[in-house]
Design a protein around this nucleic acid. Structure first.
Lengths: 164, 164
DNA sequence: TACTAAAACTGACCACTGGTCAAAGAGGTG
DNA sequence: CACCTCTTTGACCAGTGGTCAGTTTTAGTA
């Protein structure tokens, strides 16, 4: 439900109705709405980490491009998840999200360094990440999925590749 | 109030209490909360446009750097405004915000082109904008103001300058 | 001055939200 | 049976954005 309609639009009562229980019962299992949602999101951090691993494992000559494009694809194909993984700042959710987000970033940064074949500066990798994040956060929800911005994504990644 | 506490935190009743009227009265003047807020934001689009104009008018050798840094400074010093100018996607607000946002972008893009002294491709300018947007949207609300990320901002702008 | 029409405002009301909690139910063990 | 823990319920709270019939204020006219 969160994935289809977003965090704000889904109420605890909606979830309870779908489960066939009262909304009060949810508060026995989860401290609050944010805690419930963050457990849903944990799955998607794993998914992103897995995606990075898979990209690095496959036999391709241009892993770097695949890495950058893969990030954009992930962001736009899981818009609500991405929004809460890297964008939302509501105090409640953010405190639960910062640690896994940082871990995923570290994994991404290490992969980029390795895939580039060069000894890239950390600052540079961070700038590249910011540029990718900018792309996703601007196209988020304005485009139905990655396909809707695939061409622009390729152009952006191309721009970034040239800087490396 | 919006600027200090953010869109979600300020209720129509809060505003009405501050004005010394009933919250119903607000709905006589504004279709809804989003419409009220978007009128507040119009001021900040003007502010950003003015900032671009001023940067281009001043006698400096490195207008380009000033332009890019200025955008980051604006974003981090007016975090709630920036959030709703370029980040928020609630259907209500977004439809009111897209046009002025696009206009401000066009102004920015033209200024970057002129300041660079080269005939930059539009795609490239857009990528640069996305990279700046990524910086702001990631640091937003995690840092009290521009000063809190000034060093990282300088590094990021430096990275972008090198690509031009 | 008295009247009128428009503009502005009020506050009760609606359906909804996240969250709390005493009470009630289940299920298992001795 | 009693006893105990785990789980669930649903009434309740304070708050939200939004609506609207009814009232007041304002300003212009006869």
């Amino acid at each position: 439900m969160f994935i289809e309609h977003g965090y704000e639009k889904v109420s605890m009562r909606d979830i309870a109705k779908d489960l066939g229980c009262s909304h009060g019962a949810l508060y026995y299992h989860f401290k609050n709405k944010a805690a419930l949602f963050s457990e849903v999101l944990a799955f998607y951090f794993d998914e992103l980490n897995l995606l990075i691993d898979l990209t690095m494992k496959q036999e391709k000559n241009d892993k770097l491009q695949e890495l950058l494009l893969g990030f954009l694809r992930f962001g736009l194909n899981y818009p609500y998840q991405y929004e809460l993984m890297f964008l939302l700042k509501s105090e409640e959710v953010d405190s639960l999200m910062q640690q896994p987000a940082a871990a995923s970033y570290e994994k991404f940064a290490a992969a980029v360094k390795k895939a580039s074949g060069k000894d890239l500066q950390n600052d540079m990798i961070y700038s590249i990440f910011l540029a990718l994040h900018g792309f996703v956060s601007l196209h988020l929800h304005r485009v139905p999925n990655f396909e809707g911005a695939a061409k622009a994504a390729a152009v952006h990644v191309d721009f970034l590749r040239k800087t490396i």
